[in-house]
Nucleic acid binder design. Structure first.
Lengths: 234, 234
DNA sequence: AATGTTTTGTGACATGTATCACAATGTGTA
DNA sequence: TACACATTGTGATACATGTCACAAAACATT
C-alpha cells in the first residue's frame, strides 16, 4: 500500500472536466484557478481503501484513473454494489449528506484520485450551472442503474447474474473479449449475491460448455450470444 | 379512474416549495410568477398510472399529495422498487435523461401531482442555487437508500424483508402502529422479491406468533421489537 | 527451495422458497 | 341479489443454492 500525494499544477486540472465524457463541462478561467489551488492527487495501489464506511470526510473525491468497487456491510456479509470506472466522482452522497461515509470504496486496479476541497466544490456548483447540471445528470443515471441492477439481481438466478457481470466486464469495463478477472471468486459472489462455491461451479460449467475460456484469472468470452441468452433467462 | 386537471393559482404554488420538508427552499417573487404560469395539477385515483414505463415525457412531476409506487418490468416479472410518499419529485431521471420514462409510477392512494414545464424547471435550477442544491441532496439520499435497499433485499431472506416493509409502512409511511395495507399480497411479493403465497404464509405466521394482528387489510403491529429482530436476522 | 496463507475445485447434504393446485373468501358491477 | 373476477389461504412437491468439508492449486514471504 503506497500513498503518493502531490499537488496538481494547472496542466492537470483539466483532467477534472471530462467527468462525463459525452458532455464535458467547460470551466472558465476563474474556475481553473480556484481548482488548481484547492485540490490534491493521491495514488492508490490495487486493493487500497479509498473511502472507508463510517469515517468522516471533508473532501470531494474524483476518480481520475482506475477501477474501484463500491461496497458496504450488509446484514450478513460485505456486499459489492457496483464497479466504477474512471472518470467519476466518488462519494457524492457523503459530500452532500452528513459527512459520514455510508459505504466503502476500494481500488480494484491501481488508481488515482483527485481530492477537491468541499467548499471549492460547492462554489463551483453555485457559479457554474453546467457543472451542477452534469452532477444532476450523473446522479440520475446512477438512480436508473440502481433500479435496473436491483431488479436484475433479485429476479435472475445466479447463472444469469454471472453472465451479466462477465458481459459488463467485457463490454463496459475492459472493452475487450479477453481480460483478467479483477475480482476474486468470493468478491464476485459478493457482487452477485451468491456463494464463492457457486461462482466456481458456474465458471467451470461455462468453460465446459465452450461459452468462455478460463485460464487462471484470464477470461476469454468465446460465445457472447450464449452469455446474453443466459443473462436473459431469469 | 378520473383526471381532474386544473391550473394552480398563486395560492397553490407554495405547495411546491416544501419539497424537502427539512430544508424548504425559499423562492423569490420572480420564481413564483414563473411557476404559477407554467404548471398544472392533476388528481389521480388509487391505482391510476401516473408515469408509464416507455412513454415520452416533457414535464417534471411533483407529487404533492398521496403515496405512489415506482415499478418496472424485470426479467421475469414486474418489480416494485420503492414506495414514495408526498412531497417528492417523480421521474427526475427522465427529466434529465433521454425523456423516455425508464420506470412506471402508479398511485397507491389517491394522489395529486403537479406538472411543471420542463424549461421552467430548468430555468429555476439555473437561477436558484438553493433549489439545485435541494435536488442534488435528494438524489444523493436516493442513491444511498438504493444501496441499502439492494443489500438488504438480496441478503436477508423473505421473513426479514417482510418485517422491514411492515416497519417502513408503520414508521415512515403511515406513522402509526395500525394501518391498512396499501398493497395486495402479490404486490408485496413484487416489492420484496418473493411469491404471493409466501407473503400469505408469513403474515399468518406473524399473526399466529402475536407479532402483528391481521384483520383483512388492516395490520396492527403488536410487538415492534420482535419485528426488528426478525428484520435483522439475515 | 521451503513454508504458511489465500484462493479455487468439487462432493454431499440441508433448506428456503418457488410452483402448482384448488378451495375459500372478498369485491365490484349489472 | 346474483354473478364474474380478483384476492387470499394452505397443502404437496421440486429445485436452486447455501453450507460444510476437505483436497488441490496458486501465491507470497523468508
Amino acid at each position: 500500500m503506497y500513498h503518493n500525494v502531490y499537488f496538481c499544477g494547472m496542466e492537470n486540472v483539466c483532467k477534472i472536466c471530462p467527468f462525463s465524457s459525452k458532455t464535458a463541462t467547460p470551466l472558465n478561467e476563474c474556475d481553473f484557478e480556484q481548482l488548481s489551488e484547492n485540490h490534491v492527487v493521491v495514488k492508490f495501489a490495487k486493493g487500497d481503501a479509498i473511502i472507508k464506511q463510517g469515517t468522516y470526510s471533508t473532501n470531494v473525491a474524483f476518480l481520475r484513473m482506475g477501477l474501484v468497487k463500491i461496497h458496504l456491510k450488509g446484514p450478513s456479509h460485505e456486499q459489492i454494489v457496483r464497479l466504477v470506472k474512471a472518470p467519476a466522482y466518488l462519494g457524492l452522497p457523503t459530500t452532500f449528506g452528513d459527512k459520514i461515509n455510508q459505504y466503502s470504496v476500494t481500488s480494484v486496479t491501481n488508481a488515482e484520485v483527485c481530492y477537491i476541497d468541499i467548499t471549492t466544490f460547492r462554489d463551483l456548483l453555485k457559479n457554474n450551472d453546467l457543472f451542477s447540471y452534469e452532477i444532476i445528470l450523473d446522479l440520475c443515471r446512477n438512480e436508473l442503474e440502481s433500479f435496473h441492477r436491483c431488479s436484475n439481481r433479485t429476479q435472475k438466478q445466479a447463472r444469469g447474474n454471472l453472465a451479466d457481470v462477465l458481459l459488463e466486464l467485457s463490454d463496459r469495463i475492459f472493452e475487450s473479449e479477453k481480460f483478467m478477472l479483477p475480482l476474486s471468486q468470493s468478491e464476485l459472489g459478493n457482487l452477485i449475491d451468491t456463494s464463492r462455491e457457486s461462482i466456481s461451479r458456474m465458471l467451470s460449467e461455462f468453460n465446459g460448455d465452450g461459452i468462455i475460456r478460463v485460464n487462471g484469472k484470464e477470461i476469454e468470452i468465446l460465445n457472447k450470444k450464449s452469455l446474453i441468452v443466459i443473462s436473459q433467462n431469469g
